[in-house]
Amino acid sequence: MKVVYLLVALLALTSTVVSAYDPSPLQDFCVAAKEKDGVFVNGKFCKDPKLVKAEDFFRHVEPGETVNPLGSNVTQVFVDQLPGLNTLGIGLARIDFAPKGLNAPHTHPRGTEILIVLEGTLYVGFVTSNQDGNRLFTKVLNKGDVFVFPIGLIHFQLNVGYGNAVAIAGLSSQNPGAITIANALFKANPPISSEVLTKAFQVDKSIIDYLQKQSWYDNNN
């Protein structure tokens, strides 16, 4: 019987170890530091429940300004804008488009996105990873249509209608992050070596120099 009890205990311990996992990161990186030199990461400090108010779970979102080079504006509602989202694993964004406005190709490293069109017509799409052959999935969406962009994949939205367009995006993180591809490559600080970009894109250095001199716009607010 002792052997049986021992086996049961070992199985229970093994199942506990196997089911354990690290929490998903909520920032781009986290360098290990001694406690006195460190900061609290992967979330926010929690407010005393006795001091919590309804306003902690509320935010009014106005239409975004679309008079800019992209003709679009992303109004974020993540944990920094809405404290009540902390630890809940969700976020939201309102995306406003002028006619022909573009939400440029970008990724969310920490969140899947589900988009619903409130007004207008959008041409949307995402590209799969190298492993899946960089396949492009696209769809034209009208009012009431819903589309999903898997976590970490490059995706975009373009207003192909004649009027303004509005969409709401739900994301599976309180801080999903956003990496706009053109900004990351050509507006890095300090700049990425032109030798790297020339070889990567297989173009003349003058083209890379031209791209790095452009004022790449960030439409995220």
Rank of each mutant, 00 (worst) to 15 (best):
P191T: 08
K143N: 07
E113N: 07
N175P: 00
F186E: 11
I207S: 07
G89K: 10
T128D: 03
T14C: 11
V124H: 02
T128E: 05
H108M: 01
V17H: 01
T198Y: 06
G170F: 13
T107R: 14
Y21G: 03
G177Q: 13
S193M: 11
K2C: 06
F58H: 13
F137P: 02
E35F: 13
I114Q: 07
A182P: 00
N103A: 13
A182I: 08
K205M: 10
H155M: 01
L7Q: 09
N219S: 11
G101Q: 07
A104D: 14
S173I: 07
L122P: 02
L102W: 02
S129Q: 07
V146R: 03
K36M: 12
A54L: 08
V8C: 14
L82S: 03
N68W: 05
A178N: 14
G133Y: 07
P109S: 06
G170Q: 02
A167M: 00
F149I: 14
L185K: 04
E55I: 13
T128Q: 04
V31L: 11
T198L: 10
G177M: 12
V146A: 06
P105H: 10
K187G: 07
L158H: 13
N86G: 03
L26Q: 14
L11M: 10
L197H: 09
A32W: 05
F97R: 05
V39T: 08
A20N: 09
F57T: 05
Y21V: 05
L185H: 05
P23T: 04
R59F: 06
S129K: 15
V124F: 01
I151C: 12
K47L: 15
K34Y: 11
L88W: 04
L26F: 04
V39H: 05
Y21S: 11
K50L: 09
N73V: 05
F40Y: 15
L136M: 15
P150L: 06
V31D: 06
L153K: 04
I154N: 02
K50C: 02
D218T: 11
V117F: 04
K47V: 15
L26V: 02
S129N: 06
N221Q: 12
G84I: 00
L122Q: 06
E119D: 12
G111I: 07
G64S: 13
Y5G: 03
A93K: 07
T87W: 05
L6R: 11
I116Y: 10
I116D: 00
D56I: 13
A178F: 10
K36Y: 14
F201N: 00
A93W: 00
I116M: 14
S129I: 03
L70P: 00
K205G: 01
V203R: 12
I208W: 12
V39R: 10
K100Y: 13
L115Y: 01
P105G: 06
N142V: 03
S172D: 05
Y21N: 09
H60F: 12
N130I: 08
V18H: 11
C46K: 12
L6A: 14
N175Y: 11
F126P: 03
T121V: 11
K50T: 08
Q212H: 04
Q174E: 15
A20M: 09
L6G: 01
F57D: 02
W216F: 09
K187S: 15
Q27M: 11
N175F: 08
N42V: 00
P109Q: 05
A182F: 01
R59M: 09
